[in-house]
Every structure is written in C-alpha cells, then in structure tokens.
Amino acid sequence: MAIEDSDAAASPYTDAARARLAMAHEACELAGLARAAVPIGEHELHPDGTARSPGSVLADAAGVLRAAHRFFEAAAVSERLGGASWQLIGDVLGVEAQSARARFAAAESCFREELQKAGAVGGAGDAGWWRAYTAGNPLEAARDLDDWVLRHEDGDGDLGAAPVSGGLVRRDPGSKQRDPDSK
C-alpha cells in the first residue's frame, strides 16, 4: 500500500516498521561501501601492480565490515520489534537465547529509546544520524530509500514505485506494543 503525505502525521509507523526501515538504511550503506570497492582505478596501482596507497584497500574493507556489523545488529532489532523472541533469534543464529539477548538487547533498548526521543518535542536524540533521521522522519527516510532502490535496480523484477515505503505498516492508534518474549 502506498503512503500518502496527509496520512503521515495522523498515523505514525509502527515501531517494527521503523526498525525495518533503519535496517534497510544500514543495508543501503553497506551496499554502497561494498559497491565502491569494486572498481579499480588507474590511479590505485603502480605499473608493477603494487598499491600506491598501502593499507587503503584494507581500510575500506574494515569499513565494509563495520557496516556489516551495524546491518546485522539492525536486523536483530528489526526482528525483535517485529515480534521475534530471543529464543527464535538464538535459534536462527545457532546460539542460546541468552547469548542472543546478551548480544543484541542493548541495541534494541537504544533503538526503543530513540523512538521515544523522536516522539518528544524537538527530539531526535544523540544516536547516529540515520537512526535519528529514520525515527523522526520515517516517511522521508523511506522515500529516500525508495529512490536509492530504484536507481540501483538490476533486474530485480517489478519493485513498483515505492519498494521501501510501500511495505511499511502504520500503527493502529488503539494498539499497544507487545513484548515478543511474553506469553
């Protein structure tokens, strides 16, 4: 379902939708960093094939790895806010539920706090810019990602005009968030 501007203020996205949007942003950043590592410019190598800037390729790879870790963490938070229990996350990762919780609980808590700050007057908080941007301006963030996906489409099939924003779910004003670990 496409999202209309007039609906944005009246019915904010669910926390799970915002977490999924944050994960999409991390995936976008990761893809951009990895994609930038593919071309080999003439200026990169000496005529004998050695690097003109020793260590630069490794530094770029370390940046990709850091982005991959942020994506991994955002995926766990997205799953949690989408209703997954620590047991399910542990099962998917091949670890005990307690290990999954120890690894990702702080990230989930931080994300939930950022969502609360975004709802407060003037509040984007002090988290990374993407998290504050996504929490405070989810429709704009989703549309930015719509544009990115459509610019980088490589025969992915018919993604439609809103491949990110079209899938986001709005909060039912009368509903309450539930803890995925409660019965």
Rank of each mutant, 00 (worst) to 15 (best):
A107C: 03
A22L: 13
S56A: 15
A31V: 08
L139I: 09
G125L: 03
L115M: 15
L81P: 06
E73I: 08
R52W: 00
M23W: 12
L150G: 06
E153W: 04
L30R: 10
V121N: 05
L159D: 06
G123Y: 06
A8W: 05
A135F: 10
D172G: 02
R171F: 04
R131Y: 05
P180Q: 01
A102T: 14
H43P: 00
I40E: 13
A9R: 09
A31I: 05
A8N: 06
V38Q: 02
M1G: 11
S182L: 09
A75G: 09
T134N: 14
Q98E: 15
A17H: 08
L65T: 07
A75T: 13
R103I: 01
E113N: 11
Q116R: 14
E4Q: 09
G166H: 08
I89N: 02
G94C: 08
A36I: 01
L81R: 11
P138L: 06
W130P: 03
S175C: 01
A17E: 10
P180C: 02
S6K: 13
V169W: 00
F71C: 10
S11R: 15
A31N: 12
M23H: 14
W148N: 01
A107P: 04
E113G: 05
A51M: 08
S109I: 01
R18V: 13
L65A: 14
S56P: 00
D144K: 05
V92C: 01
R66E: 15
A61K: 08
G166M: 06
S85P: 02
G174K: 08
A76G: 11
R103A: 14
A51Y: 02
A97V: 03
D158I: 08
S109D: 14
L115E: 12
R20P: 03
S165V: 04
V149H: 05
A59D: 12
Y13L: 15
V57E: 15
N137F: 11
D126W: 11
G125N: 04
R112S: 06
P47I: 02
E153A: 15
A9D: 14
A100F: 07
G167H: 14
A37Q: 14
L93Y: 10
G122D: 15
D15L: 10
L30A: 11
G160C: 07
V149M: 11
T14A: 00
V77N: 12
P180F: 01
C110M: 13
D172P: 01
R70V: 01
A9T: 13
G83E: 06
T50Q: 11
V64I: 15
A62F: 07
K176T: 11
G82V: 10
M23S: 08
S99P: 00
P47F: 04
V149D: 00
R151I: 00
G128D: 14
V57S: 15
G136Y: 02
